[in-house]
């Protein structure tokens, strides 16, 4: 996993509640055996019309979006299916941070496992983020300090301390479990 320290980037706004993983990456694109290459189909049915032409009014089709590594969503971001392809497609597209009012449990876990940082935010800071992003502000996300700053925006955020360490060090948690091999073996002995 890539180390995450500080990210400075403009942000895109997709301020909708309950954005489900079927929207992030529709099921027909899950017929793959790879983790890569899914960015082109991110939000496929919101980004493109039936004939594959970009819908000009959709936020991720605006010029400059490719440089925005931060996405701002609404409440309950990433609900629905457990498909990790949702995280892979966001990251493949270049989204490394999602700021949202709240996240669905499985999406949050999948994100942290891949190095995508989910940042939960309260209503006031959410509104400030949207305003700053619309004005083209650059966001500075500092994981060590657990802060988000941009023009008119400054707040600290919560992140699971264990996941934070993994992200900062760029290590994945399989290594951590594997280190406890003897404990697992011991457990298995007395567990039927």
């Amino acid at each position: 996993m890539k180390k995450f320290e500080i990210l400075v980037s403009p942000a895109s706004c997709l301020d909708r509640d309950d954005i489900d993983t079927d929207q992030i990456i529709p099921a027909r694109f899950l017929r793959t055996t790879e983790r890569t290459g899914l960015g082109k189909n991110l939000f496929e049915d919101w980004r493109f019309d039936g004939s594959g032409n970009p819908k000009p009014d959709f936020v991720l089709n605006r010029p400059g979006t490719a440089d925005a590594h931060v996405l701002i969503g609404g409440r309950n971001f990433g609900c629905g299916s457990s498909r990790e392809h949702a995280v892979w497609s966001l990251m493949d597209f270049g989204v490394w941070v999602v700021i949202a009012r709240s996240f669905a449990d499985i999406f949050k876990k999948n994100s942290l496992r891949n190095g995508l940082l989910p940042i939960p935010v309260d209503a006031a800071n959410h509104a400030a983020c949207l305003e700053a992003a619309e004005a083209g502000a650059r966001f500075r996300i500092d994981l060590q300090a657990q802060t988000v700053t941009a023009a008119g925006v400054s707040f600290g955020f919560d992140v699971d301390p264990f996941a934070r360490t993994c992200l900062l060090d760029g290590v994945d948690d399989l290594e951590y479990i594997l280190k406890h091999d003897d404990r697992i073996a011991e457990f298995e002995k007395q567990h039927s």
């Binding site: 457990s82 499985i106 876990k109 999948n110 496992r113 994945d172 399989l174």
Partner: peptide
């Protein structure tokens, strides 16, 4: 669970 956890 997600695919990474399937691997775990």
């Amino acid at each position: 669970i997600g695919t990474t956890e399937v691997e775990h």
